[in-house]
Nucleic acid binder design. Sequence first.
RNA 1: GCCACUGUGGCUUAGAGGCAUAGCGACGCCUUGGUAAGGCGUAGGUCGAGGGUUCAAUUCCCUCCAGUGGCUCCA
Length: 611
Amino acid sequence: MKTLYIHADFMEYETKKPTPVAEELPEGHAKGRADEVLVAFITVEKKDEGKVEVVAAEAAADLAEVMKKVGAQRVMLYPYAHLSPELSDPKTGKEMLRRLESDLKEMEVEVIRAPFGWYKAFKISCKGHPLSELSRDFEGKEAAAGKKGEEKFIVLLPDGTEVSPLEYKGGTECFQIMMAKEAMKKDWPSTGEVKYARLCKKFGIQWESMSDVGHMCFSSKGALMFDLCSDYSWQIVNDLKLPVYTVKGTNMFSLDEGPVAEHAKLFGDRLYKITGEKKDFVLRYAACHQQFAMMRNWNISYKSLPYGAFEVADSYRFEQSGETMLCFRTRRMNMPDLHVICKDIPESEDWFMKLDERIYKEANKLDRDYEMLANFSSWDNYQQHKEMMLQILRKHNKPALLHFYPEGINYYWTVNIEYHILDDMKRAREIGTVQIDVGNANRFGIAYTDENGKKVFPVILHCAVIGTIERYLYTLFDTAVMQESQGKIGTLPLWVNPEQVRFMSVSENHLARARDLADRMRSEGIRVGLDDRSETVGKKVREAKQDWVAYAIVIGDKEVSSETLMVYDRAANKNVEMTLGELIASIKSQTKGMPNRPMYMPYEMSRQVDF
RNA sequence: GCCACUGUGGCUUAGAGGCAUAGCGACGCCUUGGUAAGGCGUAGGUCGAGGGUUCAAUUCCCUCCAGUGGCUCCA
């Protein structure tokens, strides 16, 4: 929408002749005059269609501000079709002006609105000071502000009671903070310094400055941790008693493809686009595109439902440059994205609840807990899924914060739950998520054949059980930071610790023995480092502790002649006597069933590059 | 994107309108040492980039870039 503002001593108009799109003229509106007025000549454009509320809100705010600044007493809205070659349809034009009028009135601004669609004569006297003539172009960028006005929040308790967030005083600290932030838009000052970044650095996880904003790189330790977590996310979905098809896709999709473009439109302004030779591409924001693109060609029978499709998909979202946060909000992330293809709504609810249970179980394994923010795309969808929600709440014996999106927008999903942890700085952070999608099967042409030979569009669940791999790492680091905040020693789960054991030789005479022990453990699939440098024992021990090695063992004269080792156990933070066999057995039992990979760098420290 | 702050060898950092600090790390020599840093020495810098003020700018001013925190945002 283009506008021209003129601060005038007076402005008067007279309608002459209606055009075919003219609005009905109320009594006494054929002529109008205003003194000490800010006149806004307004052209509503094609690109404003469908964004009336947003654009009007943005313009109203600006008009009120300018009026105040120049000291005008009132505003006149004057439809003026000549500021742009691309006019909107007349319906949008009229809507926009009325909306603008009511928005301004709501702000207690005196408004005169000239009629739409008439030829009019006018006289104006421009004041001529520097701010008396201004032009503006409103694009409705502050879409959220408009949307937010119509959001609603409710707290749903396990017994079915619905309470306003303002009145609900129960729940955990995490729940209260989530409510304050999401529903009441209150500030909840985070506390303390940011500590997880220190751990990211320790394990070689950082921003890649030679790339775009928000792209991370992982040196060997971090890369190993990443891959282990990625393996784990795969393991989880294959442990769900659900047939799962693991696939591998590409990360860019053409905007010339109808479903891709439509889906992209719903995604909004966070599309990460790149320009190709002949086409423009969108970088995928999850594994959806690839899996849907594949599945539309699959011959699916009702007999093979439900099934899952899975990929740890590199995904891209064009986050605002000031918004990025290492491991948490990035432009490139890795989404262990599971889609479950279900026959119908009841089956999707059944699997929704199973996934919910697994999401909680994974948090609990790390000694963490989640609070739920449940989003609904309409009140009807809430009624449809209310019984399922209540079952979930009763299972966890927790309330959920329900968030209702503005009605009337055709979202592809009906309900999704975001699972939030409370991090060390007392911020609620979304990690896991699951949602029901009733739109994309149709959009992408994915259908199965039912018992009667009819084609049916399935219901699709989207789920990230442990969040993105980066966010899962964030959770691991945050958990360690919290241990430290409580005065304990920070640890990583043993299966994900890049160096599970380190042998340190006292002198060169003990190297052969240390190497022998290390090799025996390595052949058992344990990640072992060997500090074979000619440094003092004190220094080697110090560094082993700084590197968060889980078990550190000094090899000297005593260990050369005995099978018993003095093992520093980081988790217990003390020295324990045991044999090599006992240590191997202990590590194996602690990491049983978890992913394993060998070290990603030379195990001899004398060969390692310092980074 | 907005506001504030920060930007000095690979890392952590001192400094101030006039020779650019130190520690770690790297390299060399000495030391063969039993649970959180052994000693001596060497190399390594367009002080984020560009412009301006000045006899002189890494320091002051402007613009840009990047990072951090907060805000906004988060299908």
